[in-house]
Design a protein around this nucleic acid. Structure first.
Lengths: 117, 117
DNA sequence: CCCATGATTCAACGATCATTGAAATAGCAG
DNA sequence: CTGCTATTTCAATGATCGTTGAATCATGGG
């Protein structure tokens, strides 16, 4: 059986309160800024975030971000790649993601991971 | 005994994850955009929000917004006035509040109240 | 002083959350 | 097929959340 690609909500179904709820956790903000700071777009493995939390907890947080329409997760072989749904999200909530990322990036309370080689 | 003015966190102690958590509820977003759309700045009574929820539930949500550093609450006689901590918040998280409010304002899922006379 | 008004506090509830560790799954390499 | 690696799922936990309704408190007006 093929491993199914995970569920991604239609961006139009995403609602502001759910987005903010998903952002309301330091680990998830850490995942987001780490992704945003990653040069190699769409090349961030899930396994690269282990400094932030245990694998199973990461999986939980990945799902939260994904279900809030913020990130996309693509299975490729045994690995999963994570990326931000930039263009779609920008269309849906213009300007929001940029200031969220800027805010999180500036703040030392948000944990980080270096994703680039 | 004088009714004590409620607790407001030092804006420097406010952390992004807590801000987003506070924004992660439709009623609280509704309070925020209603405040933002109010012409008479600093003149919004707590009691003007009863369309959004019961008094006790409103009180709960007011506290969440206040403790996240987003709003200010000033007791004056038997009435309490609510306002957004605009300047302070803008200094602490430049640009964030504007795009949050714009996002919430644009979205029909966020309930609203008409505060002006 | 008593009462009405505006608002908060409290106790309770079920629901969801973040976290853990163990088990399951899928693909790849031998 | 066998095992190895990357990741998710599941079951269980305690904590926090959103909501309700009753009780409380503070203030101003009669």
């Amino acid at each position: 059986m093929k491993k199914p690609q995970p569920f991604h909500p239609d961006i139009e179904d995403v609602v502001p309160a759910d987005v903010f709820a998903a952002l309301g956790d330091p680990i998830r903000l850490g995942i987001l800024v780490s992704l945003a700071d990653c040069e190699e777009v769409d090349k961030a493995r899930c396994g690269a975030f282990t400094e932030l939390a245990s694998p199973s907890l990461l999986s939980y947080h990945f799902a939260k971000l994904r279900e809030a329409g913020i990130t996309r997760s693509r299975a490729e072989g045994t690995v999963r790649f994570l990326s931000i749904r930039r263009e779609e999200f920008e269309r849906r909530f213009p300007g929001l993601l940029d200031s969220v990322i800027e805010t999180a990036r500036r703040d030392p309370s948000v944990p980080r991971v270096k994703l680039d080689v």
